[in-house]
Write a protein that binds this DNA or RNA. Structure first.
Lengths: 360, 360
DNA sequence: CACTGTACTGGAATGCATTCCGGACTCGTT
DNA sequence: AACGAGTCCGGAATGCATTCCAGTACAGTG
């Protein structure tokens, strides 16, 4: 009875309504019920008008639309999601959005998804395999209609299981998982790029080529390694060394050091990613080795300044924005009832002065 | 009666239930009602157990938990969202996630938000002012609990209005809007960075300094311009030229061309962004001008390869990941009932050989 | 004029979980 | 033994929109 003011306010409000009400996040906005009352019709009619159902007379349409205008009614998407069982939302599990490559993919995907009325939930696994799985589950709890997956580790059984026990349409982005044809995929033809790079290096006269690759737990690395080994086999006398590890500057540096200190130091290096490139460059700089005089260099995946580098860097490029767009399209196809599909996009070797004949 | 099999199945199913059911997106999973039945208790009790309400006996807890286990029950977040009026979701409106700076901010924000149980919806305005406003409205329709705003144009009245007519807690990221203290903000101290840059250039002997800036519709550009003008005034004889425009390579090139063709070509250029830097470099390269012999160069916001450039680029850096983290923290504070707040983070001038004394 | 058909409309069930309220039961106390 | 108190539980309303179904009203046909 002698409540503190704060509690009293609550009590007063409650008695006014003669019923409790949960916290409404926004200033009480009109619901469909209010619209129905205002227009003097049933809620079902309001729903029909708003959803474009054919069984609606012109009179009804006008009355409802007028009420909608007057009250500034906007449907509550949460209620629609709950009722319809679809959220018009897609989850994007990405290793690390701060990687420009992934960021461009995300951009391409988001633009395409939004055009189709979908919103995109983004989670970063920060290269932690366990988080991949956690995020897949998390997004499913949030009832996403589909998943875009750029996993940081495709060999993690936990992730595989999380994906296996679900029917959520998914698209793998440059990843390879045993999904038994359940998932669509957009892939890059890394083999073509690496093969072209090797061909070029061999033609220039290189016989010791190294690949400083990233994590072997993702498809691009494995494809590149395989392609490198196969490409080299076609040229007797040419020999390749591979160092895979993390997609980090540290690995780039360490691997380069190892290679150059080895018994047969390479005359050409292929860097398997942005971060790795930085590490390779750091080690070459530390040793005062000049590109391409002492070592030829080719990097995978474009970096904005590559062509202004001294010397301009040779790059194996691809179109990440396009990759995101295609991923979105594949997912939308599946959401529309289509079958899983796999699309492979090209990679191209862009020449640059960082590649030259080795010193004799 | 003689329906096609497909329809028949539907009909049979309906009559079995004696009622219709909407499409359930996932394989029919158990709901709270099933758990309640299984455990032989009321739904309210199940809810209490799951939500950690105190009025629960150990017996009850065990029974319910057992049923939950057996049925593999997972609460439907959509229903919870609808009921609770909170989505545990935050919207991030960003100009263009493919900009590495923004991508790192997004990463910092997402990690911090996720740790607090929030998911992040991402939309790209692709530098279209109109889309800024559209996305703010879109995210509100999706009932986000809060907004992170890195708008592409803070002068658009449409966006201002969309924000004014809402009470959704927001955090501006390096943007300045007349929100009447409603929104929190994380800002970068661009003035400090530019001032340091000017001081350094002046000390080296430069008297004609240019700033190739980005869009004047966002705070960083305006801050930089103001700071440049003020810093120069402190040094009689030193004079600054500013060219603002889009955050594009094209603008960088065009502005540089203009400046160098002008009556008093600058001996030092400050590039106001990643894309702009590329344009500036392109134009300098086209003219065969050497850095720093012919022109000194400083760029804003780090690029991965800046320090391996020839010469290593002087950069005005900041910590974008931290910026994202702080933005998330400010938003979480507001969601927890805290007051709006503004935080300013530092910028630092990192020296590089791209800055030297001008030719005599 | 009766009857079938068409065009709409309202009512109610539904999706799923949360929370208020009242009631039942147990226990301690005098 | 009885009563006030404390524990705990079930029932029902609630959030909000969708959709099935049944029913009204009016038009067209024989």
């Amino acid at each position: 009875m002698s409540d503190a003011p704060a509690r009293k306010r609550t009590a007063a409000r409650r008695s006014a309504d003669s019923t409790y009400r949960p916290a409404t996040s926004l200033a009480d906005r009109a619901g469909m019920r209010q619209v129905a009352n205002r227009a003097g019709v049933a809620m079902s009619s309001v729903s029909r008008v708003l959803s474009g159902h054919p069984d609606v007379s012109p009179t009804m349409r006008d009355r409802v639309m007028a009420a909608v205008e007057e009250l500034g009614y906007e449907p509550n998407m949460l209620a629609q999601m709950l009722r319809r069982g679809a959220t018009q939302t897609v989850g994007f599990v990405v290793g690390d959005i701060s990687n420009p490559l992934l960021a461009q993919i995300a951009l391409g995907a988001e633009v395409a998804l939004r055009a189709a009325g979908y919103a995109m939930l983004l989670t970063n696994s920060v290269n932690d395999a366990h988080l991949d799985a956690t995020h897949v589950r998390l997004l499913q709890q949030r009832r996403v209609d589909g998943l875009l997956l750029s996993l940081s580790d495709e060999t993690n059984p936990e992730t595989a299981e999380a994906l296996a026990r679900t029917t959520t349409p998914s698209v793998l982005i440059d990843r390879d998982l045993p999904t038994e044809g359940q998932a669509s995929a957009v892939l890059s033809d890394h083999a073509a790029g690496i093969t072209a790079a090797v061909e070029r290096l061999v033609r220039l006269g290189h016989e010791r080529i190294a690949l400083v690759a990233g994590s072997p737990h993702v498809r691009p690395t494995r494809e590149r390694i395989t392609a490198m080994e196969e490409a080299v086999q076609a040229h007797p006398g040419v020999f390749a060394q591979v160092r895979s590890g993390a997609f980090t500057e540290t690995h780039g540096t360490a691997a380069t050091r190892e290679l150059l200190d080895g018994r047969r130091p390479p005359t050409a290096i292929v860097a398997g990613g942005n971060q790795i490139l930085v590490g390779v460059l750091a080690e070459l700089a530390a040793r005062k080795l000049r590109i391409p005089r002492d070592v030829s260099l080719i990097t995978c995946d474009d970096v904005p300044l590559a062509k202004f580098f001294t010397p301009p860097l040779a790059v194996i490029t691809r179109d990440p924005y396009e990759m995101g767009s295609v991923a979105a399209r594949l997912l939308l196809d599946r959401l529309g009832g289509g079958e899983p599909e796999t699309v492979t996009l090209p990679t191209t070797l862009v020449a640059g002065a960082s590649c030259a004949a080795p010193r004799q």
